Simulated scan of single mutants.
Amino acid sequence: MPKTISRRRIFKWTASCLAGVSVAAIQGCKGSSGSLFSFMSGEESDLFDAIPTKRYGAKWLTGGTASLQSSSYPKPFLELAANSLCELTPKLTEGPCYSTSPVRQDISGGQDGIPVRLYFQVVDIDCQPLSNVDVDIWHCDANGVYSGDGMRSEEFCSGGNEEYVKHKWFRGIQPTNEQGTVYFETCFPGWYPGRAVHIHMTVTKNGRSYTTQVSFDDALVKSITTQAPLYSERGTPDTSNDSDRIFPDGDDKTHEMETMQLDDGSIVAWKTLVVSV
């Protein structure tokens, strides 16, 4: 039986392989099944000089997705070895704030916040990419409030605010491409009592769905909620990833996204989702 490969171990191995290596030499850094690191196609395809570290500066870009520039930025996803056994992403509750989402790439609805370029790669248990499956994501705004109608707990999610109920801010659906990847533009979520900062998502194929949630590194959340305009006004969350009642306990960090703060103060975040649909 092939040994299970965890995302965190792959990043650790790849970081040691790429550290100090020039872009030209990266193509020679391979495992037995080929390159472990590849990038989405697009106008720009810049490579990381190294795997991002968990260090965040005090400069944070504001103004929402409208402030994103078309300059070069990394577009990452992991290409897992074809003969490896992938570890299923834990199924997590849909929560009470689900509402139908529009099909769109920019899910911000013009709202303010730190802009985030968000990537997901969807693969099956054999690490094969799942193309043409719908990825539906939703999260709260910088103030910890959800928008949308028909939520199971409208008072809790939107505070009964009619303006929030009639909009679909921070909700969207995108189909995966041939590599199983999707791309969204959004703003960094805020927090509300009892939960760590998180994003909800459901992957759907032929009427079958797989629902989970992802989180952000606590150090990133602390940097933003203590230093970034708009977010620092509310202070730091009352719940960390470890103390969150929804996410797994202990050292299980399978729900955390990989993140990179860019020079302009925006964020690139990404995660491979292993699902069964």
Rank of each mutant, 00 (worst) to 15 (best):
T4D: 00
R9I: 12
R9P: 06
S16N: 08
S16M: 07
G20Y: 14
V21E: 13
G31L: 10
S32C: 07
S33F: 04
S33G: 07
L36G: 09
S45I: 08
D46L: 03
L47M: 05
K54A: 10
R55I: 00
L61H: 09
G63Y: 06
G64Y: 04
A66H: 00
L68K: 05
S70G: 11
Y73K: 00
K75A: 11
K75M: 05
N83V: 14
N83Y: 05
S84W: 01
C86I: 04
T93R: 14
E94M: 08
Y98Q: 02
S101G: 02
V103M: 09
R104G: 03
R104L: 05
I107D: 11
I114Y: 15
I114W: 14
P115F: 09
Y119V: 01
D126Y: 08
N132K: 05
A142W: 05
G144S: 13
G148M: 13
D149S: 13
E154D: 09
F156V: 02
G160P: 12
N161F: 15
Y164H: 14
H167N: 06
H167Y: 03
K168R: 13
I173N: 04
E178N: 01
T181W: 04
V182Y: 15
Y183S: 06
F184T: 03
T186I: 10
F188W: 09
P193G: 04
G194C: 06
V197W: 04
T202G: 03
V203S: 03
T204Y: 12
R208M: 10
Y210C: 01
V214R: 07
S215A: 13
F216E: 08
D218M: 05
D218L: 03
L220C: 09
I224Q: 05
A228P: 07
D238Y: 07
T239P: 02
S240F: 08
D242F: 15
D244V: 04
I246K: 09
D252E: 05
Q261H: 00
G265K: 02
S276M: 03
